[in-house]
C-alpha cells in the first residue's frame, strides 16, 4: 500500500485513546483543566483571526464611530461647551466598541451558534461550556481593543484631546475590571438570548441606545442625577466609563455627583462576580433544560 491509502492507514491506526475506552474516558484534573483552557483558546481563535479576514471592519468600526464622535464634538464646539466635554465624548466613543461587541457578538452569539449547528457540537464535546463563553469573550475583547484604540488615537489626534492621568495603575485596573464586568454580563446575556430565541434580537436595540444614554456615552453620567446613580449601580458600561473619565481626565470639575474611582472599582468587582456566576449558573441550567426538553441544542426546536 503506497501513497494516500498508506497515509490514511497510518493515520487511522494511531490511537490517542489507548487500548481501553473506559480508561480513555478517565481524565485527570490536569487534563480537564488543559481541555478547558484549550477550548477557550480555540473559541477565541476565529474572532481574532477574523479581524484580518474582513478588512471592511476598518470602515464600519473605526470610520463610522469616528464620524459619530465627530458629530458630538462639533456640536459641543458650536455650543462653546467646556473643552473637557470633547475628551468625554472621545473616550465614550472608544469604549462604545466594547459595548457593541458585548451586545452583538456575546449576547446574540449562542443563538447564532445554535442556528449554525455549532451549539450541539459544543454540548457534545468534553469541555465546560463556560470555556466556550470565555473564549468568545477573550476573542471579542482582543477584537474590540484594537478598534477602541484606533478610535481613541485618531479622535484624540484630530480633536487635540488633553489627557491628565495621575494613577496609571488604577486606570489599568479599572479598565480590566470594566472589561470583566462587561463581558461577564455578555456571557450571562448569551444564555438569556438563547432561551428567548429570535425575540431576543429585539432586545439588542433596547440594549444599545438606551444604555448609551443611561451610561452618559457623550456626557458625564452624574448629570442624570438619580437616574445616573441607578445606572452606575447596575450597568457596567456606565460605571466603567465614569471611572475611566475620572481617572484619565483627573481634576476636571465637570465630573461630579458620582462615587470615586476606587468605589466604582469595587462596584465593578461585584458586577464581575455576579455576572460571571450568573452566566455559569444559567449555562448549566440551559444544558439541563436542553437535554430534558430537547429544545435548545437541536436546530429545528
Amino acid at each position: 500500500m503506497t501513497g494516500p491509502a498508506a497515509t490514511r492507514a497510518g493515520v487511522f491506526a494511531r490511537s490517542r485513546g489507548g487500548t481501553d475506552p473506559r480508561e480513555a474516558a478517565e481524565w485527570s484534573r490536569r487534563q480537564v483543566a488543559g481541555n478547558n483552557l484549550r477550548a477557550l483558546r480555540g473559541r477565541a481563535y476565529p474572532r481574532i483571526r477574523g479581524m484580518t479576514r474582513e478588512p471592511s471592519w476598518v470602515f464600519f468600526e473605526i470610520l463610522l464611530p469616528f464620524l459619530t464622535t465627530s458629530a458630538f464634538v462639533l456640536v459641543y464646539r458650536a455650543l462653546q461647551a467646556p473643552e473637557a466635554y470633547i475628551g468625554f465624548v472621545v473616550l465614550g466613543g472608544a469604549l462604545s466598541a466594547f459595548w457593541l461587541n458585548v451586545v452583538w457578538m456575546m449576547a446574540g452569539q449562542l443563538y447564532w451558534e445554535k442556528s449554525q449547528g455549532n451549539l450541539e457540537l459544543y454540548f457534545a464535546a468534553p469541555m465546560n461550556l463556560m470555556a466556550v463563553l470565555l473564549g468568545m469573550a477573550v476573542g471579542g475583547l482582543v477584537m474590540s481593543s484594537t478598534r477602541a484604540l484606533a478610535v481613541l488615537v485618531i479622535s484624540s489626534l484630530v480633536f487635540g484631546v488633553q489627557f491628565n492621568v495621575e494613577q496609571w495603575g488604577l486606570v489599568l485596573l479599572v479598565f480590566l475590571l470594566t472589561m470583566s464586568a462587561l463581558y461577564g454580563l455578555g456571557m450571562a446575556l448569551a444564555s438569556l438570548f438563547l432561551l428567548w430565541g429570535r425575540e431576543a434580537f429585539n432586545m439588542t436595540n433596547i440594549l444599545i441606545e438606551p444604555v448609551y444614554f443611561l451610561s452618559g456615552l457623550n456626557f458625564p453620567v452624574g448629570r442624570l442625577g438619580a437616574l445616573g446613580a441607578m445606572a452606575i449601580a447596575t450597568i457596567p458600561f456606565a460605571v466603567g466609563l465614569d471611572a475611566m473619565r475620572q481617572l484619565v481626565f483627573a481634576g476636571q470639575p465637570y465630573i461630579t455627583g458620582t462615587p470615586s474611582p476606587e468605589v466604582e472599582a469595587l462596584i465593578l468587582v461585584a458586577m464581575t462576580v455576579v455576572f460571571t456566576l450568573g452566566a455559569r449558573w444559567m449555562i448549566r441550567s440551559i444544558e439541563r433544560m436542553a437535554r430534558a426538553r430537547g429544545s435548545l441544542s437541536i436546530r429545528w426546536q
Partner: peptide, 29 residues
C-alpha cells in the same frame, strides 16, 4: 458524531484552522 448536511464551524476560517479550533475542544495541545 458527524451528521449529514452539517454546516458547523465558521466560514471565515480555512479548513485547517477550523479543524484546529475543534481539536482544541477535545484538549489536543
Amino acid at each position: 458524531m458527524v451528521a449529514g448536511g452539517e454546516q458547523s464551524g465558521y466560514g471565515i476560517l480555512t479548513v485547517r484552522e477550523q479543524l484546529w479550533m475543534f481539536s482544541q475542544f477535545y484538549g489536543l495541545a
